[in-house]
Design a protein around this nucleic acid. Structure first.
Ligand SMILES: [Zn+2]
Ligand SMILES: [Zn+2]
Ligand SMILES: [Zn+2]
Ligand SMILES: [Zn+2]
Lengths: 130, 130
DNA sequence: CACTCAAATGGGAATGATTGTCAATTTCGC
DNA sequence: GCGAAATTGACAATCATTCCCATTTGAGTG
């Protein structure tokens, strides 16, 4: 299914991965670039974009979109899962939902769609923000 | 939950709604603006954006995001549902899934999140595109 | 290690969707 | 009809993301 593009290990790619690993919440490419710069790492903005995108494509990291459409990324356990995000403070809970997975597969099959993938994100207001 | 902002009926708003109703697939604000112009309707681009956004906020129309992040809209049955979109031709199937609804509610409750809403979109390759 | 070459980088310009501005117009209750 | 408030429109301004392309670098090869 997924065409694996050749990937080299570069200082920049490692720096991006490391910086992302430090982040608690989802961060945009711009934000991560700023952090890298603050940390003294010298990585071009375009490179941050390219690496985040390829890592997301390879399933190494998660990518979702904010309400305004901006893409935000986060390093997390590699196995497939979803998120429950607080609309107020942004705190996130990772959800492993075998239930949704099965549902998605079934719906795809019912309508004869192949290679079905899904986007499932939950948002709400966490206990401490109420 | 939803604060209903006062909405007036204007020629432009009606034109946007009508044009959207004619569309088979999801369309972006830009595309809809072009269609209106072609049809001889004179509506400003900013107005198309504003109306699509407010209609989506009111739940009158659906809004999802393309892979590139661009927002696309579609008029459809007003009751809550989800979509299964073909990655190749864009053909869409509307999905009414009581199963997901229950799952989302349960997960929210389990983690003590209030006002939980969800985003669920499926993509695949339809039969005729294989 | 020296050598080769495609992959990767950077950074500044270009793109393109979306938003902001604000005067002019329109709606609608009174 | 009147007037306050909502809406519109043309255009400028934002701003994330992509392009371009000369330069650097990773990683086999012998
Ligand atoms: Zn919170
Ligand atoms: Zn729909
Ligand atoms: Zn198709
Ligand atoms: Zn639902």
């Amino acid at each position: 299914m997924a065409e694996q593009a050749p990937r080299r290990t570069t200082r920049q790619r490692a720096a991006v991965a490391a910086a992302l690993g430090q982040c608690e919440e989802f961060v945009s490419a711009q934000e991560l670039h700023a952090r890298l710069r603050t940390d003294g790492e010298r990585v071009g903005l375009a490179t941050v974009y390219r690496n985040l995108q390829s890592m997301a494509a390879d399933g190494e990291i998660d990518m979702i979109r904010r309400d305004d459409g901006e893409a935000v990324y986060r390093a997390c356990s590699t196995d497939h899962h979803h998120h429950l995000v607080c609309r107020v403070c942004g705190s996130t809970v990772e959800i492993a939902g075998p239930a949704v997975e099965r549902w998605a597969d079934r719906v795809g099959a019912e309508h004869d769609y192949a290679e079905v993938s899904h986007t499932v994100e939950l948002t709400g207001v966490c206990a401490s923000c109420r």
